[in-house]
Design a protein around this nucleic acid. Structure first.
Lengths: 127, 127
DNA sequence: CAAACCTTGACAAAGTCGTGGTAAGGTTCC
DNA sequence: GGAACCTTACCACGACTTTGTCAAGGTTTG
């Protein structure tokens, strides 16, 4: 048999069985099941579990962060809105007077709202 | 004066002053300061604070989620690694036998590692 | 068939997040 | 100069997340 059950997979990946179930619950690694319902971890799953650990350790992330990234990847509308909001972030020019950066800011914001609207459905803002 | 102090900004955006400081701490909205250190919220900040609320309410996100998205946007290496990991997700073809999808999986993984490597070497300053 | 493994579900300890409050002190501006 | 506002730095608390563990029962396989 070339697929491992959950305890074996835990053994070789360094996760606990509990965490493997949790990771599956987050949609991060979802192994196929045996006819009787046992999780069967193949080479691909094992590989992803190991790289997942590296990813988390290397950047001080949590599983929830990766779960959120997954959500962003799968939900186009959400990703569009988040990206638009983030791009409206200043990265404020250093030496401009107040009126200038304010205009620049608003202009940028309008461009982004337009993009979000195109990409998505309704993005409505009222003052 | 065309910039609001923190309590005024809280008033018009619906956040509490406490939360405005927290939001700044997360790097989400960082208003400029007066010479004496007072936060000064201009039109751009106020707008972003209002859209931030919509974003959160509309999709059941947390501030931490948006903070992570910000991190992803600013750290190219991190974004590359997360994207590569996510793309190695199966979206597994339904009816293929074990050997086939395993090969497909590994092939895909290699492509993604290659892409991540390319992206990393193309790192340049965004601002 | 029986030992060893797996399943789901629940409860619980520990940690983090979002939020409020308060204290000690600096800034604005009338 | 003094009232009203702001700053940072804490402590606190409820809600949620992360992780462990246990119980009752189904699966695999020698």
């Amino acid at each position: 048999m070339d697929a491992l059950t959950i305890n074996e997979a835990a053994e070789t990946t360094g996760w606990t069985p509990r965490m493997l179930r949790y990771i599956e619950e987050l949609g991060l690694v979802e192994p196929p099941r045996s006819p009787g319902g046992y999780r069967l971890y193949g080479a691909g799953e094992l590989q992803r579990l190991r790289t997942l650990r590296e990813l988390l350790d290397g950047h001080d992330l949590g599983l929830g962060d990766v779960g959120f990234a997954l959500r962003l990847q799968r939900d186009d509308a959400l990703r569009g809105e988040v990206d638009a909001w983030l791009l409206s972030q200043p990265a404020r020019p250093e030496h401009v007077d107040a009126d200038d950066w304010l205009a620049w800011e608003q202009d940028k914001h309008e461009r982004l709202l337009a993009e979000a609207a195109r990409r998505d459905t309704t993005l409505e803002e009222t003052r």
